Every structure is written in C-alpha cells, then in structure tokens.
Computed example of a mutant assay.
Amino acid sequence: MSDGLNDARAMRVAEIMTDFRNIQHYLVQLRATPTAEEYYIEGYSLLRQCMAEAQSILQTPFSGSAGAATGNPEHERQQLKAIITDAAVRRFQCQRAYLRAHAGLRWMNSRNSILREQKQNASHLGALQQADATLRNELLATTDAYVENTLRTQDAAQGKWLHEDPSLAQIQQILMSRP
C-alpha cells in the first residue's frame, strides 16, 4: 500500500538531479593547460582524474529497475525510492569529484601565483612544496563523511525532504559493489 509520499519522492528526485547536473556542469567547465613538463604534476593529474570520474559517472547505467508507469502507487513508490538512491549515489560521487577538483584548482592558482609565468627554479621550491602539501592535506580532509556532510547540510539548510536519502554507509556499500 502506498504511503502518499510519491509527490515528495518525485520532488526529491528532481532536486537531486538538479544538484547532480549543476556539479557535472561545473566539472565539465574545468580547464587546466599545463605545459609538457607540468602535465604529470600531482595537481594537474588530480584535475584530469576528476574530469574522468565525472565522465564515468555519466556512463554508469541506472541501477534501479526501469519499468513503465503502471498507475500502481506502490510500484511507483518502489521505483522512486530506487531512483532517489541511484541519483543520490551519483550526486555524492560528483560532489566528491567537485571538492577534489576545487582543491586542485586552488593548488593550480597557488602554483601560478608563485611562478608568475616564470620557469620553475630553486627560489620557488619552498613555496611550491607548501602548495603541494596544502593540496595533499585538503585531499586527506575530503573524506566520504565530509562529502556527505556537505550535501546533507546544504539540503537541510534549504529545507529539503531527506527522509529516504541513502545513508553514507548505504552509499559506500553501493559504490563498493559496482565494478
């Protein structure tokens, strides 16, 4: 028997998918143009990895059951719950890539500020090492719990209906079960 919350579930799907689309849009806009010598430096590699993750998320097939609308509220409830879970997992993955990419962009801007369009030399070494260390620390701080907290805090602040969003443990379990 349906619980009368399918409209709320449908609205939640739309909210999550809007967030997902916005994060994907941001990730697609990333532009880093390292020189041949800089191409494999940690921050530039990170940015490429984040963009590849975003593409991979888009290519992952929907994990729920896709069936035609039957007019059965209970079937619709189950379908909407599956879509909420799938969309929430994708949004989580995109948010994680976004936060990591943002750290990479801060690193890139810091590096550019240090070098000021000069070739890297010994006088830059200390400042560049500090920028690298800052990047590594930011990446270490970008835990799954932190990513999930950024999403939940934002959703709660906007008064969104979160009752059927998957927990962090569920999201991690789903991600570990994917090939």
Results as ranks from 00 to 15, higher is better:
G4V: 01
D7C: 09
A10I: 12
A14T: 14
E15V: 15
E15L: 12
I16L: 13
I16R: 02
M17S: 13
V28C: 12
Q29N: 14
T35I: 04
E38N: 09
Y39C: 06
G43K: 03
A54N: 11
S65E: 13
G67Y: 06
G67N: 04
G67D: 07
A69L: 13
A69V: 15
G71S: 09
N72T: 06
E74A: 13
H75W: 11
H75S: 09
H75T: 06
Q78W: 12
Q79R: 14
K81T: 07
I83A: 13
I83M: 15
I83Y: 09
D86E: 09
A87K: 00
F92L: 05
C94L: 13
Q95N: 01
R96T: 08
H102S: 06
A103E: 00
G104I: 04
L115P: 00
R116C: 05
K119R: 15
N121I: 09
N121W: 13
A127C: 11
L128K: 01
Q129R: 10
A131S: 03
A133Q: 12
L135H: 03
R136Q: 15
N137A: 10
E138I: 00
A141M: 03
N149W: 05
T153H: 05
D155F: 07
A157Y: 10
W161G: 01
H163F: 13
D165C: 07
D165I: 03
S167W: 02
Q170E: 15
L175Q: 11
S177V: 04
S177Q: 15
P179A: 15
